[in-house]
Design a protein around this nucleic acid. Structure first.
Lengths: 155, 155
DNA sequence: TATTGTTATACTCTATAACTATA
DNA sequence: TATAGTTATAGAGTATAACAATA
């Protein structure tokens, strides 16, 4: 019951498992700040995802945020009511809507970014600046690859 | 409304945000396999966390899994009923219990590790083998530091 | 008094299926 | 028929407060 464990102890220290755990811990680290300004995790994620482009369709936004379009609907409703995003019909397609960050939404994110900087430094305190930058590169590579090849192979 | 976005677009590509999103995507990638063997994400996490030591107290296990001890209670109940973990009273402390992976639990993890290997390769397909190893190192450094300094500074 | 484990509960996130309106 | 958005709902994860038993 002892020597054979090395095989799946490897999984415990693999990147997948660590991503799963660190993702939860990262969300916990900024959870208090979000609660203070009345944002849930998904609302925050959606706002941040919107910073990547000027305006996008709701379906595109769901993909960018890595979440199911159905779960995005109530999030968009809340953010619209709070005027943190701006919604307008897509002139090219009567079914679609174009979503963009509002000035108020941009300002809120700017405040949060300042407030979260110390938490980030504490969270990644184990890494030297160069290591942190390297980590960002690697994560970004995995993330963008996953968002690109989504919905095709996994089905 | 355009040029100022660079500031928090930086957050979008920071390690914290990417960890949060990739954690969700990683869990999704092995979710089907877990469902097949009747395990939830937290049950899986707890089993994997147990591979790091022979036996530990429930409180220690919660810390190792990065979860709240209260949320661990029903998980331990299920895993015990399914004989995937073995529980015995701590001889040194009448309040505490000692939890360990059972042979059946170890076997189940071994099977899962084999089944999940192709999913892992696809998930991290953007990285060369050396890059994957480097990513593991960096994540492990952050993770172990967070588990070590927990409950002190954040309060 | 402090700690281990527990119960009850509310909130959030994700996933399943079926629906409306437009293309 | 295919797609954009929606609704309803169930399942799972996390967090809050209060409790019993042991140290």
């Amino acid at each position: 019951m002892s020597g054979e464990n090395a095989r799946f102890r490897e999984f415990r220290h693999g990147a997948g498992f660590l991503l799963s755990r660190l993702g939860t811990l990262a969300e916990r680290s900024w959870g208090a700040a979000l609660h203070r300004v009345g944002l849930t995790q998904t609302e925050f994620v959606v706002l941040v995802a919107l910073t990547d482009a000027g305006a996008m369709r709701q379906r595109e936004l769901a993909a960018a945020a890595g979440m199911d379009p159905r779960n995005l609907v109530p999030v968009v409703a809340v953010l619209t009511r709070r005027r943190l995003i701006a919604v307008r019909p897509d002139p090219d397609d009567g079914r679609a809507k174009l979503l963009a960050l509002s000035d108020a939404g941009a300002e809120l994110l700017r405040e949060l970014e300042v407030e979260l900087r110390p938490e980030r430094d504490a969270f990644f305190g184990a890494l030297a600046p160069g290591e942190y930058a390297r980590l960002c590169e690697l994560l970004e590579a995995v993330h963008s690859e996953l968002l690109a090849g989504r919905g095709d192979e996994a089905r």
